[in-house]
């Protein structure tokens, strides 16, 4: 600390009178009681890491959804116009972009979502 320290000459506030008795009495009462049961649900709920993983997963899926959509939309539009599903067939052949994202983003699901494949037809396979 230097003479230019703006807090030089000051101290932190002291704990007020009476708080000591109150806090220690509460602690002794707590020690005499059985410890409350803490469930794993509570632990996970309080865990900031859980929320980070959850937020990260949502962000990843959102980015993947947008990326896949932007990547495939033009080709799927052409498929729809031609009515041949060539893009889906090509993706199925080399297990390309959509397959890499995971089962949720399978070629058939994407094709149904973009209207290239008929939903009933897909469900009946």
């Amino acid at each position: 600390m230097s003479a230019h320290d703006p807090l030089l000459g000051f101290r932190a506030p002291l704990a007020p009178d009476g708080l000591r008795e109150r806090a220690l009495a509460a602690a002794r009462r707590a020690a005499a009681e059985p410890a409350p049961r803490v469930s794993w649900v509570d632990v996970l709920w309080e865990s900031r890491w859980l929320w980070r993983v959850w937020a990260g997963t949502v962000a990843f899926l959102l980015v993947a959804y947008i990326w896949v959509g932007r990547s495939l939309s033009p080709a799927l539009d052409q498929d729809r116009a031609r009515g041949d599903g060539a893009t889906i067939a090509a993706l199925r052949a080399d297990d390309g972009v959509i397959g890499a994202v995971g089962p949720l983003w399978s070629q058939e699901r994407a094709a149904v979502a973009w209207g290239v494949l008929d939903r009933e037809d897909w469900l009946s396979r």
Partner: peptide
């Protein structure tokens, strides 16, 4: 639990100050 007094002497002002 008598050791709580020692913890209080060592830390109470810092605890209260930070909380405040």
């Amino acid at each position: 639990l008598d050791a709580l007094d020692e913890i209080w002497r060592l830390c109470a002002d810092d605890f209260y100050g930070l909380a405040l």
